[in-house]
């Protein structure tokens, strides 16, 4: 793209942005789509960090008493994830 075209494209992009903003009450489809997406995907932050970092033995994953005995053993865990991923993996096997 040459400089004249770039300048034209740029100023019309900025003009478009201004009018998209001005049309906030009746936005173009692309903005509506984005807003709909945004509306559909509220992020919930369940707990504040104070609750997480609270230095309370019982607050964690295990109670202190339970964990102290196993502290030096790395916690063993199942080698295959058990959860929703299995459902997606089904789809994967189909596609491969």
């Amino acid at each position: 793209m040459n400089r004249v075209l770039v300048a034209t494209a740029l100023s019309s992009a900025i003009g478009l942005a201004v009018s998209m903003q001005a049309l906030a009450d009746n936005p173009p489809q692309v903005v509506k789509d984005n807003m709909a997406r945004a509306m559909a995907q509220h992020l919930e932050k369940c707990y504040g960090i104070n609750a997480v970092a609270k230095n309370d033995c019982a607050e964690g994953v295990h109670s202190c008493a339970g964990q102290a005995t196993t502290a030096r053993d790395p916690k063993s865990f199942v080698l295959l994830p058990a959860g929703d991923c299995e459902k997606i993996q089904g789809g994967m096997m189909k596609s491969s």
Binding site: Y47, V61, C64
Partner: peptide, 26 residues
């Protein structure tokens, strides 16, 4: 243990979908 479980809990809060995908133990 408190240190570890606090950090694991912090990860759980940031990564709930990862946790749900693999299960709590994994």
């Amino acid at each position: 243990n408190t240190y570890r479980s606090t950090l694991v809990a912090a990860l759980r809060q940031v990564y709930p979908a990862v946790e749900r995908l693999v299960g709590a133990e994994f």
